[in-house]
């Protein structure tokens, strides 16, 4: 291997990489710092430095008066329920599509994966009508149902890609021992599927947590409104007060950031899963 020396070329590359690092990170740093400042500092005295007094009241304002606690709760409920439902349905159908034997397996798979090509924009108006007809508009279900439906194709793509790597012998042994199909699927296959389920879960989590279009069309009350739209709402009230807005943005980003810090490569794998397999 070549020995690494400090040539001008290498230095230039490092400088360039560091510049892009700053471009990626600085906006976030700025967000964190102004979420703890008051307007006087943000607008004049101390624009880019660390806050001179840490104004935690921005956070309590956002949390209480800005209703961020409510929106956060709604986001958690919606995301968690969508995750469970999507993973359950995708696992069940992947097992049925890949391990069971029947006519039309391929066609059904293709049909479900068709969903990958459909942008949700195109379904908004009819979906609004359907959700109204089944009486779930402006309830948590009104978001959980469409989110699940639109995330199923991707989850199936990820999960079914993994099922193939589990040896048939595992099931054979289970069935010979007299284990039923449900017990085999859920106590023998499911535990081995954890890596794929985690990958799918992270993907779905990020999609749902960050979704805005459906959340703005299908929800009209604060009681179910999720963070993305809730924060938009809050901007109306706090147009000129940047501190609480910054605090709200930080609160809504923290779950994603923490997830990424804890398992960055896993998160990356989830988000590029579609590209690598597709």
């Amino acid at each position: 291997m070549k020995k690494r020396t400090l040539s001008p070329g290498r230095v230039a590359i490092q400088v360039f990489l560091i510049l892009w690092t700053v471009a990626c990170i600085f906006p976030l740093y700025w967000l964190f710092s102004f979420s703890l400042k008051d307007n006087a500092e943000i607008f004049g005295g101390n624009v880019v430095g660390l806050p001179s007094h840490w104004i935690w009241s921005n956070y309590t304002t956002a949390w209480g008066a800005g209703k961020i606690s409510l929106y956060l709760r709604n986001s958690v409920i919606t995301t968690a329920a969508t995750l469970l439902l999507t993973l359950f349905l995708s696992f069940m159908s992947s097992y049925g599509l890949l391990r069971m034997r029947w006519k039309g397996q391929k066609a059904t798979m293709t049909y479900l994966l068709l969903g990958l090509m459909i942008p949700m924009h195109a379904a908004l108006k009819p979906l609004l009508g359907i959700l109204m007809d089944i009486n779930v508009l402006s309830t948590h279900l009104g978001l959980i149902i469409p989110y699940t439906a639109f995330n199923i194709p991707m989850a199936i793509l990820i999960i079914s890609g993994f099922i193939g790597s589990i040896p048939y012998e595992m099931e054979e042994a289970a069935y010979i021992d007299g284990s039923g199909v449900y017990r085999t699927a859920f106590t023998i296959i499911l535990p081995m599927m954890v890596p794929a389920l985690v990958t799918a879960a992270i993907f779905v989590f990020l999609q749902v947590w960050n979704e805005m279009l459906m959340a703005s069309v299908f929800v009209s009350t604060d009681n179910v409104r999720t963070l993305t739209v809730g924060i938009q709402q809050m901007f109306g009230q706090y147009q000129t007060d940047w501190g609480p807005i910054g605090a709200a943005l930080v609160i809504s980003t923290l779950p994603t950031l923490i997830l990424y810090l804890c398992m960055s490569s896993q998160v990356q794998r989830s988000l590029i899963a579609g590209a690598v397999k597709g």
């Binding site: 069940m92 049925g96 068709l114 009819p126 359907i130 439906a149």
Partner: peptide, 23 residues
């Protein structure tokens, strides 16, 4: 097979495919 696959197919059809066709 029905228990494993049908719920997903129905769910997906009803909330993704039907809306697109309606659109």
């Amino acid at each position: 097979i029905m228990v494993f696959v049908l719920p997903t197919v129905l769910f997906f059809s009803f909330f993704v495919i039907v809306p697109i066709v309606l659109s």
